[in-house]
Design a protein around this nucleic acid. Structure first.
Length: 430
RNA sequence: UCCCUGGUAGCUCAAUGGUAGAGCGGCCGGCUGUUAACCGGUAGGUUGCAGGUUCGAGUCCUGCCCGGGGAGCCA
């Protein structure tokens, strides 16, 4: 008899199979017991009829509690009444481990309770679907970049200095000196781009900001491509192609999971290049037209981003931000020194900024001035300055936040459900 | 850090200042096609903590603790 995953039972119609999994739910009509079994790939109803299984197997069903692990064997049968299209006519039931009273019921629960039980919450159909979509997004990003001859270069997680500022870093002791958990791999990717041409890193990043919103995690994952000999326009072209590719691939490969989450996919289907591009100045005009009092030079807030995104049916680029509100390494627009060659990508439906990127300063003298202006420790950036001393060239890149992208594609109202074990303000358990 | 809001059974929630309750889950029993099954029975409480007002506080007041939503900052 073959042991199969529930996702593949349809390939064994009429045959006896073995399924190993956990009891999701149980219903009974006296001498017929319905076991709803899950195995991580899907759910299936196993029908246990008295007289058709050994007496001890039927009696075992009585002892099976929610989330007990078990093995069932039986014939696969197509049934119109079954949600997955198939059910198992059980010939044998073997409890493996009887679960204690399970805290998570099939009814509703509050956020606090679920977060405290994240290790168990992860088993529920909705969470499984979200994590499978996340997995597909990660795979799609990597396939997209690998197919275009980008080289994956891992950036360090322990770093000697801040990438963009010192207020938001987690600090740790590094023998007798200080080290910080990385907030971005970008500076290292600039070094790698000079070695390989086109590179990206993919890993966790950390921000110690005391942010408590639906868009923030203390620990989140970013993919950060960096390209030598590419300007801001080329940077944006790559971004819109990548984001479109990822969305279309999730629509193709994970339609079932999106249905489980009850995502309205009609809005995702429109996500195809080209994406609209507006300048910061145009964005400010749009905001003012909507009655927002906005001062030139400020960065946009969450509400502002939503207003801007609602003007379009797909993600929108906002480019050429004021130099004052962006990081020290952003290259000034040669035609206008007060704005820089940066671009953020705002997701539709109020999900906000999912990408921040731009063209980097390639001139050694200007970069040195900026390090000084931002009062950064020159010593710590000496290696970074070297990149402009030894064959500098125009280069650009961007960082895409995985969790915000997952939240947008899944249509979730909080990023805490987009990562297996979220680290939130004042919450590091489990 | 600031603003708003909440904390009652394992969970989700009721309870006009006047006897702390329901559904789900648990346990016991019933039912041969159930779809968060259903039906009957049953156990389960320091109402977040500490004070105060009152004849009487889950309810009103003060302080603290913890959660949720939002702002700033950001991806």
């Amino acid at each position: 008899m073959e042991t199969v995953y529930i996702a593949h039972v349809g390939e064994h119609e009429g045959k006896e199979v073995e399924i190993r999994g956990w009891l999701y739910n149980k219903r009974s009509s006296g001498s017929v017991v319905f076991l709803i079994v899950r195995d991580g790939t899907g759910f299936i109803q196993a029908v246990v009829a008295k007289g058709q299984v050994p007496e001890e197997g039927f009696a075992a069903c009585d002892r099976l509690t929610q989330e007990s692990s078990l093995v069932v064997r039986g014939a696969v049968r197509a049934d119109r009444r079954a949600p997955g299209g198939y059910e198992i006519l059980v010939s044998a039931v073997e409890p493996v481990s009887i679960a204690e009273e399970y805290p998570i019921s099939l009814k509703e629960h509050g956020v606090d309770f679920l977060m405290d039980h994240r290790h168990l919450w992860l088993r529920t159909p909705r969470q499984v679907a979200i994590m499978r979509v996340r997995n597909e997004i990660v795979k799609a990003i990597r396939d997209f970049l690998d197919d275009r001859e980008f080289v994956l270069v891992d950036a360090p997680i322990l770093t000697p200095s801040a990438c963009e500022g010192t207020t938001t870093l987690f600090e740790t002791d590094y023998f007798d000196t200080r080290a910080y958990l990385t907030q971005s791999g970008q500076l290292y990717m600039e070094a790698a781009a000079m070695a390989f041409g086109k590179v990206y890193c993919f890993g966790p990043t950390f921000r110690a900001e005391k942010s408590k919103t639906r868009r923030h995690l203390m620990e989140f994952w970013m993919v950060e491509p960096e390209m030598a000999w590419v300007d801001l326009d080329g940077d944006m072209r790559l971004q819109e192609e990548m984001v479109s590719y990822v969305v279309q691939r999730v629509l193709e490969e994970r339609a079932k999971d999106l249905a489980t989450i009850e995502r309205d996919t009609s809005k995702l289907e429109k996500v195809k290049p080209p994406f609209p591009r507006i300048s910061y100045d145009e964005a400010v005009e749009i905001l003012r037209r909507h009655g927002v009092e906005f001062e030139w030079g400020n960065d946009f807030g969450g509400g502002d981003e939503t207003i801007l995104a609602e003007e379009f049916d797909r993600p929108v680029f906002v480019h050429r931000y004021p130099t004052v509100c962006k990081a020290f390494y952003m290259k000034p627009d040669p035609n206008r020194a007060d704005v820089c060659l940066s671009a953020d990508l705002l997701a539709p439906e109020g999900y906000g900024e999912i990408i921040g990127g731009g063209q980097r300063i390639d001139d050694a003298d200007l970069l040195a001035r900026r390090v000084e202006e931002h009062r950064l420790p020159a010593e710590a950036y000496r290696w970074y300055m070297d990149l402009r001393r030894y064959g500098s060239c125009p280069h650009s890149g961007f960082g895409l936040g995985i969790e915000r992208t997952v939240a947008w594609i899944c249509g979730l109202d909080h990023v805490r459900e987009t990562i297996p074990f979220p680290r939130l303000l004042n919450r590091i358990y489990p």
